[in-house]
C-alpha cells in the first residue's frame, strides 16, 4: 500500500488536470483550481526545504573556514536581510525595494545582456567547426546576421528576401518537426509516470 498509494495519487491528480482541459464539467474545474492551490502551498514548503539546503551548505563552508567562506557569509546575510525585509516589513517596504532595484534588477539585466558576448564567441566556435552540418548552421546564421544589420542590407540588398524565405519555409519546417516530435515525447514521458510505468521519480524504482 505504501508503494502503490503515491502512484495512484499522482495518476488521479494528473487525470483530473487532463479531464479539466478537455471536458466542461464544473466539478472537475473546481477540483483543478483547488489542486493548483495545493501545489502552490506545497511549493512553498519545497522552497523552505531548498532554502535550508542553501543555508546549510554555506554555513558549513563558513564553519569549516573553506575557501569562499566570506562569499558564503555575504550570501547568507543578503538572503536573511531580503527575507526579513519581505516578510516583516512587507514587499512594498523601502528595504525590500532597495534590494530589488539596486541588486536583483540590474544583476538580471547584466546577466541577460552578457549572453550577447557568449553568442558571439559561440558563433566563432561554430566558424571553426569542420563538418558539413555545422557549416550549414554557420552559413545560415551569418546570412541572417547580415540581413538584420543595416549595413548588411545596404551591401547585399537581396539578402533580406533570401533570409525571409529561410525563416518562413525552412526554419518553420524545422521548428515544427522538432515541436511535433517533442510533443509526442512529452506526452509519453508524462503518461508513463501517471500510469505508474515509470516510478523512478517517486523514488520507487521499477519493480
Amino acid at each position: 500500500m505504501k508503494r502503490e498509494a503515491p502512484i495512484v495519487l499522482a495518476g488521479i491528480v494528473g487525470l483530473i488536470q487532463i479531464l479539466e482541459h478537455f471536458f466542461d464539467f464544473e466539478a472537475i474545474a473546481a477540483v483543478t483550481v483547488e489542486l493548483q492551490n495545493w501545489v502552490i502551498i506545497v511549493s512553498a514548503f519545497s522552497l523552505a526545504l531548498a532554502a535550508i539546503n542553501l543555508a546549510i551548505n554555506h554555513t558549513q563552508k563558513i564553519s569549516a573556514k573553506k575557501a569562499g567562506a566570506f562569499d558564503s557569509a555575504l550570501l547568507l546575510i543578503t538572503m536573511v536581510f531580503t527575507a526579513v525585509a519581505g516578510i516583516f516589513w512587507g514587499m512594498e517596504s523601502s528595504g525590500f525595494k532597495f534590494v530589488f532595484n539596486a541588486i536583483i534588477d540590474p544583476a538580471a539585466s547584466a546577466f541577460y545582456a552578457m549572453a550577447a558576448f557568449h553568442v558571439a564567441s559561440a558563433a566563432y566556435r561554430a566558424f571553426r567547426a569542420h563538418n558539413a552540418h555545422a557549416a550549414a548552421l554557420l552559413i545560415t546564421g551569418v546570412m541572417l546576421m547580415i540581413a538584420k544589420a543595416p549595413i548588411g542590407e545596404a551591401w547585399f540588398p537581396w539578402m533580406p528576401t533570401i533570409t525571409n524565405w529561410i525563416m518562413s519555409v525552412l526554419n518553420l519546417a524545422g521548428v515544427r518537426g522538432i515541436m511535433i516530435s517533442s510533443a509526442i515525447g512529452m506526452i509519453c514521458v508524462s503518461a508513463r509516470i501517471l500510469l505508474g510505468i515509470d516510478r523512478s521519480h517517486l523514488g520507487l524504482g521499477r519493480d
Partner: peptide, 18 residues
C-alpha cells in the same frame, strides 16, 4: 516525501500532456 512529490509530479505530468 513521496506523497507531496506525487501531487506535484501528477499535476506537472497532467499539465504537460494537456
Amino acid at each position: 516525501r513521496r506523497y507531496p512529490l506525487s501531487l506535484i509530479i501528477g499535476v506537472g505530468a497532467g499539465i504537460t500532456i494537456r
